[in-house]
Amino acid sequence: MLLPRFDFHDPASVQEALDLKKTYRENARILAGGTDLLVHLKKDLVSVEHLISVTKIDELLKIEEKGGDITIGACVTMASLAASGLIGEKLPALKQGAQSLGNHLIRNKATIGGNACNASPAGDTLCALLIYDAAVILQNSEGAREVPVSDFFVGPGKSCINDDELLTGFRIAVPPAGSGADYIQLGKRKSSEINVVNVASYIEIDPANQNILNARIALGSVAPTPIRGAKAEQVLAGKTADDTVFFEAAEAARRDDCKPIDDFRGTAGYRQAMIGVLTRRTLAAALAQAQGK
């Protein structure tokens, strides 16, 4: 359980970090909170020659609202996200995700960029990023590009980030009035948990007739990456929001959208059943929020 030997870099700006990334490419790993990477290094699950720490770069620590968008720097910690009034008010499911991750100590270190780059199917903020349709901002020394978060995850622990790129943040359009979102994670205990299943739902309704204008559902721990519940979303499209349609959507999510496996944290059968329960519950909570309840 000793850390292996590596060279440690502590750049003060994004540019400096990108220069380092360009030089060392696949031989370098980005270190943010370290709550996953340092554990993997100690367990000898990953090897690395260079660690580039990005936690001292001020521009990666900001949460800002500008022109209808909220941008969140990659190094914003779970604790800061959970404490942010802006996130709590406008992106409540993301706050819930941040609050659910690990425990107090881990939330003080773990970052949202790290949670995304670790690309665990069970990642606590990832379902929220999916339902808010976040854009992932990736930079290299040449410039920046944006990738929809639904395209970002490629497999367990894998994303579409290139060797010379740094994830600098996320851009999320502020949800309109008449929308609501919710996140629920389910584990064996109430803290320090690695999820057995986790679900987030977003819903936008026409206040005049309760018709669903837009719905997004994200399912965690039931596929190689966090996924959107496409079939469940189709069930909801254009319908009037009520318990019956939510039940149908939950059935679609359970039956058609998720592809869970058996592992030591839980069986596929239980995960599938819980996708149904949590989809229904998150939709109901999201609707209540959309209705201003």
């Binding site: 425990n103 205990r189 109430k190």
Partner: peptide, 29 residues
């Protein structure tokens, strides 16, 4: 009663050999 259990693979290795996966009670529980 609630969540502790040492688990093994079929070769006799402990699967949950750390306190993240071996679940003792936290203050929240």
């Amino acid at each position: 009663a609630m969540h502790e259990e040492v688990m093994f693979d079929d070769k006799g290795n402990v699967l949950n050999n750390d306190l993240a996966e071996y679940k003792i009670v936290t203050s929240m529980d």
